Amino acid sequence: MPELDLSPEIRALRSTLSDVRQVLNPAGLGEEVVRLKAAAAAPDLWDDPAKAQKITSELSRKQGLIEKLSSITSRIDDLEVLVEMANAEDDKATQDEAKLELEQLRAILSELEIQTLLNGEYDARGAVITIRSGAGGDDATDFAEMLMRMYLRYAEKQKLPVQVLDTSYAEGAGIKSATFEVDAPYAFGTLSVEAGTHRLVRMSPFNAAGKRQTSFAAVEVVPLIETTDVVEIPDSEIRVDVFRSSGPGGQSVNTTDSAVRITHIPTGIVVSCQNEKSQIQNKAAALRVLQSRLLEQKRREEEAKKKQIAGDVKASWGEQMRSYVLAPYQMVKDLRTEFEVNNPAAVFDGDLAGFIAAGIRWRKQVGV
């Protein structure tokens, strides 16, 4: 049996690890862990639950990064030993084990490398995601609901906390729109590459003739507002309406006017929340989403000015960024990155890691 030579691959792993370590700065991470541990040990930590959650989450994330860097270093060293052992014993099973370990290390390093690219102004924030159905009738509202489930499944698999803030159900199938919050570190940086227009092509289950139907849905991703942000919204600039929450088919969810709709008069932005138990809670949640959207609008305006000044002629973030084709063939393809898979069912079940990683690399490359 020929000897197994993984030396070029192992050198590549060490080179990538070196680049990742340079960006993540383990020494700096260690100093941050010490500071966060001290903050987490404060006796009044949980007097402010939101602040406490942020501190403990950030502490856990940075400790995890340090442990992962140390583990990868040890595993690469062990891989070299494993290859030597496989060749010395002329053992195919050990060679296969070494190849499997190589692939696993590549995957872990690729994930870490993606994290090093999340260095935008708001990338470390949580995210507020809104899905809206577009052209396509019942197929579009059904598609919007499929996308909502896709992102909720992705968050579940990644163990990201999600809170659904508002859902507007369609009269037929699916939803007109939905807004939910992913309050986890780097949720915005990770999920912002999902923003844009999504297209579905399939044999319509709502068409008696069974014709192929194309439908669209829009995904909006904005950074979650933080208490340190200053987004002043004078009371004179908003209109607050209250109404009763409702579910599919108009079924009453509660018997009081607890749902809240806030309209920002200068921009026309409308935000509603009906998933909390009281009107006060719904108003607070809706204001938070409104502030997030105004913050994102401000960021986009600033970026537009920068590009205008710089004379940037690069292609903008495309309106139609991904196609989900269920007929006559099976494929999901990102039109920006060319990344594609032939298993739409897995994608709709939350298998988005490949698309997100490709999107983050593409964004960095084109400077979007």
Results as ranks from 00 to 15, higher is better:
residue 49 P to E: 06
residue 170 A to D: 10
residue 45 L to G: 03
residue 31 E to A: 14
residue 73 T to W: 01
residue 121 E to F: 02
residue 343 N to H: 10
residue 199 R to E: 07
residue 178 A to H: 04
residue 345 A to S: 13
residue 207 N to R: 00
residue 349 D to C: 02
residue 321 M to A: 02
residue 332 V to Q: 02
residue 136 G to M: 05
residue 7 S to F: 01
residue 251 Q to V: 12
residue 255 T to M: 12
residue 40 A to F: 05
residue 220 E to R: 04
residue 109 L to G: 02
residue 59 L to T: 13
residue 85 M to G: 00
residue 50 A to R: 14
residue 21 R to P: 02
residue 81 V to N: 08
residue 134 G to D: 04
residue 36 L to M: 04
residue 231 V to F: 13
residue 1 M to D: 07
residue 316 S to K: 14
residue 75 R to A: 13
residue 350 G to E: 05
residue 205 P to S: 02
residue 138 D to C: 06
residue 229 D to T: 12
residue 295 L to R: 13
residue 356 I to W: 06
residue 127 A to L: 08
residue 184 A to H: 15
residue 350 G to Q: 08
residue 96 D to Y: 02
residue 356 I to N: 08
residue 45 L to S: 02
residue 54 K to T: 11
residue 331 M to E: 15
residue 119 N to W: 00
residue 121 E to H: 12
residue 119 N to A: 12
residue 359 G to S: 08
residue 145 E to I: 00
residue 260 V to K: 03
residue 79 L to M: 05
residue 7 S to C: 03
residue 158 Q to N: 09
residue 264 H to T: 10
residue 221 V to N: 08
residue 281 Q to G: 07
residue 288 R to P: 04
residue 125 R to F: 06
residue 317 W to S: 04
residue 129 I to L: 15
residue 363 R to F: 02
residue 140 A to T: 05
residue 210 G to K: 13
residue 276 E to L: 10
residue 261 R to I: 09
residue 65 L to Y: 07
residue 327 A to P: 01
residue 66 I to M: 14
residue 50 A to P: 01
residue 199 R to W: 07
residue 13 L to Q: 12
residue 89 E to P: 00
residue 25 N to S: 14
residue 26 P to Q: 11
residue 31 E to S: 13
residue 354 G to R: 09
residue 25 N to A: 13
residue 205 P to N: 08
residue 46 W to R: 14
residue 267 T to M: 02
residue 98 A to I: 03
residue 267 T to E: 03
residue 226 E to Q: 15
residue 29 L to W: 03
residue 58 E to I: 09
residue 280 I to K: 12
residue 308 Q to H: 02
residue 45 L to H: 07
residue 259 A to S: 08
residue 114 I to K: 11
residue 99 K to M: 14
residue 178 A to T: 11
residue 264 H to S: 10
residue 48 D to F: 05
residue 329 Y to G: 09
residue 124 A to D: 15
residue 109 L to C: 03
residue 25 N to Y: 00
residue 103 E to K: 11
residue 206 F to T: 05
residue 303 E to P: 00
residue 284 A to S: 09
residue 31 E to C: 01
residue 40 A to M: 03
residue 80 E to V: 07
residue 344 P to A: 07
residue 242 V to S: 15
residue 287 L to F: 10
residue 27 A to S: 10
residue 99 K to N: 15
residue 46 W to L: 08
residue 184 A to Y: 15
residue 169 Y to K: 05
residue 307 K to Q: 07
residue 110 S to E: 15
residue 278 S to V: 01
residue 241 D to A: 06
residue 250 G to R: 08
residue 23 V to C: 03
residue 103 E to A: 01
residue 159 K to A: 11
residue 328 P to N: 04
residue 324 Y to E: 08
residue 126 G to H: 10
residue 172 G to E: 14
residue 42 A to E: 11
residue 219 V to Q: 06
residue 93 A to P: 00
residue 106 R to P: 00
residue 86 A to E: 10
residue 261 R to H: 05
residue 157 K to S: 14
residue 327 A to C: 04
residue 282 N to Q: 05
residue 137 G to S: 06
residue 261 R to K: 14
residue 287 L to H: 09
residue 199 R to N: 10
residue 104 Q to R: 14
residue 310 A to S: 10
residue 247 G to P: 04
residue 113 E to D: 14
residue 307 K to W: 00
residue 187 A to S: 07
residue 315 A to V: 11
residue 49 P to I: 05
residue 197 T to Y: 03
residue 306 K to A: 13
residue 244 R to G: 03
residue 287 L to T: 05
